[in-house]
Design a protein around this nucleic acid. Structure first.
Lengths: 357, 357
DNA sequence: CTGTTAGCGCTTTCAA
DNA sequence: TTGAAAGCGCTAACAG
């Protein structure tokens, strides 16, 4: 019987209770009800206030967000656009951003682009439609001229609509940003290897159109150049920023450059793949080959040997970016710079003695 | 100069373009403009349609979501409540759910509860305020009587408001659900160990108030009982469902039950911790001790030896749940059951010979 | 302190 | 096919 009753309630037409209902039951005006339930100021008498409260409670009243948004010309929604929630890098950034949003009583709309620029544009447009207070872009890095142009237009439109916008890491578009010093990180990673005496260094790179990739690679190149250590072209092998990509790239690398004693993988996921490839080849890490990654994701502690890497405080980055985008707009673009730090673990060690030559 | 101009535009008061502007510029009525821009039916003449389209485009018009929601009495928002986005288990479920939402042109509001029941209730309430079309609960499992009572009330209220609601894995509340057969999974895990000849089996358990934990444990207990293999009380050590929890629990376990030859960790994160503890103790896996986890998260492939585990198709689960909750309500509660499957990898092997006795 | 009322931007009858 | 107008639920002057 009770099953039946509850079944019925699920398909029965809904008669949502509105503020008017509450006001009526409490015998007060709409305005008064509004003031006690959603108004910030406490300008309502004790008695009426009580009446409204209990009426609302008895009716299980919940305010109508969209109506409030319309009347107030502002929502309590913020948007967050990432590459992929499953990627721990973005999950960490999202977690930090969401924490701040929660502190500010904001709901967050999360979207994944899978690095599709069209999707990024589309989601930004949808956030504009939703009148999100702010949008945080964390998933792009596409550098095509026409794309950054369009992204810039969309960002402008979003701001014209009253929303604030910012990004994590460079998007090739002028807006508030939390910038990661990927170049310095790349430099530090290479230097770490250099300091250990390595001279036959290789890089497992990522998708060339990602700014992040370019910067990390540049940093490494610079450090090597400064040290007078060559980085032959075939010692830079691109992967696709995934474990499997790192594995494949390593196999290919060692065919062409078997003397390699150290590998810098441009992120931890790929570094994990490097380790897998090395294990399958029977090459000892770090005795024969050292490996360093980038990001310091949880996976860096899950491998054995554990990964040396460049740590980025990702949650903090997400939180800072959200905080920044929630502040009122200022005259000039704001920028925060985050520098990573080397975390030496067991996957890097002294270069083996060079055999002959 | 251009910098200056763009700076100004950021702080200047906004004059959002509305449908009325578009209508005026196209010299048509509000109704007509509405019909061509947001109406489903194509009941507008070719010429007017064109005029409206180009006016909208020139003005960079974007419809006002909240206003539409108010007029239509329905939004294009769905809510997703998980435990923690950083947890790959929930990230996978979220990814599946978000994929389906995208197919249906819905935006998703994501919230993390960190297993705080109050937060779960709070977010559900906020989704009600936002008039989300549907809410998917994936993060709970709290079993306290008063909590499920309250959750039930909230769910009811959400539905009364016209929204649909469902959950992933049992929440102790009557609603549509995608149920994971954790009991069968626990049974299968234990059986796998039994089949390998193990008789001194231990379980690294999780927070006792989680239904998931109880079911996995029950399954294992049953399988062992059926096989006539004892599971002494001190062979069940609770951890906190994290890597560190698994590590600590293992250290404790081996102090009290040093003869253990196989460990069933109730999820992969903890299994990872088990492996770490074993390595620090110098116990060979699987030669001396076998380890099996649960969930088949990416980490299961990152350890060495790689983790044997019970695979749950998490993305598919998220997708199914979202699909279910997006369908129109039916008379009776819907339920889908998902059974995991054993994935044997290198962390489990034959039981070592028993020394004496 | 409380109530009246005019919108907020859009959809949707209802007529023309 | 098109337009006029009445709301949707709520907020925020404004008046008392």
């Amino acid at each position: 019987m009770s099953t039946l009753r509850s079944s019925n309630s699920r398909t029965r037409p809904h008669t949502p209770v509105t503020l008017a209902h509450v006001a009526a039951r409490a015998q007060v005006s709409l305005a008064t009800a509004s003031r006690v339930l959603n108004g910030s100021e406490r300008t309502v008498g004790e008695e009426l206030r009580e009446r409204v409260m209990s009426a609302a409670h008895e009716l299980r009243y919940a305010s109508h967000g969209p109506a409030q948004a319309l009347a107030r010309a502002s929502t309590s929604i913020v948007g967050l656009i990432v590459h992929d929630v499953r990627d721990p890098y973005f999950a960490a950034i999202a977690a930090g951003a969401m924490r701040v949003a929660r502190e500010d009583n904001l709901m967050v709309m999360l979207a994944s682009t899978f690095r599709d620029p069209e999707l990024e544009l589309d989601y930004l447009e949808r956030l504009r439609v939703q009148r999100a207070r702010a949008a945080l872009l964390a998933g792009s890095g596409n550098t095509s001229r026409t794309f950054t142009q369009r992204l810039g237009d969309s960002a402008r439109a979003f701001e014209e609509g009253g929303g604030r916008i910012a990004c994590v890491s460079a998007h090739g578009v002028s807006m508030d940003a939390v910038l990661l010093d990927n170049k310095q990180g790349g430099r530090d990673a290479a230097q770490h290897l250099l300091d250990l005496g390595h001279r036959d260094i290789a890089v497992i790179s990522g998708p060339a159109q990602l700014l992040t990739v370019r910067h990390r690679l540049e940093g490494a190149t610079d450090a090597l150049a400064d040290a007078g250590v060559p980085l032959p072209e075939n010692a830079i092998v691109p992967g696709d920023f995934s474990r499997e990509g790192g594995r494949l790239a390593t196999l290919q690398l060692l065919e062409h450059a078997p003397k390699t004693t150290a590998i810098f993988a441009l992120n931890d996921l790929m570094a994990r793949g490097v380790l897998m490839a090395l294990e399958s080849l029977g090459r000892k890490v770090p005795e024969e080959i050292s490996v360093i990654g980038f990001d310091d994701l949880p996976v860096a502690e899950d491998t054995s040997p554990r990964l040396s890497t460049i740590r980025l405080p990702l949650e903090e980055i997400g939180a800072r970016a959200m905080r920044m985008v929630l502040e009122p707009a200022s005259e000039k673009r704001r920028t925060e710079r985050i520098v990573g730090e080397v975390v030496p673990r067991e996957s890097t060690g002294p270069a083996p003695k060079r055999r002959g030559r």
